[in-house]
């Protein structure tokens, strides 16, 4: 557990203020681009040529994508700016809260969940929940087309008692092993099809959360053979973490 110093409070406040400025000052002109584009599309539809309509549609799409990326950058920055102090945290509780949040997706995709007890850690409970939710959400999203997702969430034996490990494993589309590291880079999307919405910040956020807790996350899989995401965290966060 760590104590925030007044100096780091000031730093967090400054970061928070900066993020609000970014959110507001970039967000408003972007909203205007999207909104005026949509009004043009609605009201001048008949007067635009077919290619004019296509260009406009692409412009609005680009604006919407940029808005999503801006939101992604803000979410990423909030891993540290909205961080909570570390405290004992039961991962089973956080997993159940994450599953509750994803309940409609799980039901709609008829996902099968194989759950085993998870350990406790000292950490930021909300971020642990966010981490679990993101990994489960990805496992649902990247199931093989037409197949219900099958997801296993379990603790994994660790060779070092000072560390705990747990996995979120699926039987979905998997990834080319060459991209096992790249998927954690911000705005990296291996599947840019409209069938898989997102801007590619989810796993970067997961990595940042693990790093903040003094741990790591890794991906192992191959194309068509599912993906196993392993989270490795220290039983107790190292000094300075959190």
């Amino acid at each position: 557990m760590s104590e925030q110093t007044s100096g780091s409070d000031t730093g967090q406040d400054a970061l928070q203020d900066f993020l609000q400025v970014v959110s507001h000052d970039l967000g408003e002109p972007l909203r205007q681009v999207i909104s005026f584009g949509e009004i043009l599309e609605d009201e001048e539809h008949e007067r635009l040529s077919e290619s004019g309509r296509e260009y406009l549609h692409a412009m609005i799409g680009a604006g919407v994508r940029m808005r999503a990326m801006l939101d992604g950058v803000l979410q990423l920055a909030r891993v540290s700016s909205r961080a909570q102090p570390f405290a004992p945290c039961d991962l089973n509780h956080e997993r159940d809260a994450a599953l509750l949040f994803l309940e409609s997706d799980i039901r709609r995709r008829q996902a099968t969940l194989n759950l085993s007890p998870l350990p406790s850690v000292v950490g930021d409970a909300l971020q642990m929940r966010q981490l679990l939710r993101q990994l489960i959400e990805n496992a649902i999203k990247f199931a093989k087309p037409g197949e219900p997702p099958v997801i296993r969430i379990a603790e994994q034996p660790s060779s070092d008692p000072a560390w705990i490990e747990w996995v979120v494993e699926d039987e979905g589309m998997g990834i080319d092993p060459r991209y096992q590291q790249v998927i954690f880079d911000v705005f990296q999307r291996l599947n840019a099809s409209e069938a898989y919405p997102g801007v590619g910040v989810g796993l970067t956020i997961c990595q940042r959360i693990c790093e903040r807790h003094g741990g790591q996350i890794s991906a192992v899989g191959s194309e068509g053979q599912g993906l196993c995401m392993t989270v490795r965290l220290p039983q107790r966060a190292p000094p300075g973490a959190g």
Binding site: Q20, S23, H24, G27, E28, L30, R31, I34, S35, E38, I39, G63, V64, R67
Partner: peptide, 30 residues
């Protein structure tokens, strides 16, 4: 407003603002 800053929301509520609406990116939602 475009800002969803918690401190702005709190201050607005404290000063007696009835509602705090964050502008949606899509015009029809706005």
């Amino acid at each position: 407003t475009t800002s969803d800053a918690e401190k702005d929301r709190e201050e607005a509520a404290h000063l007696g603002v009835n509602e705090y609406v964050v502008k949606a990116p899509h015009f029809r939602d706005f």
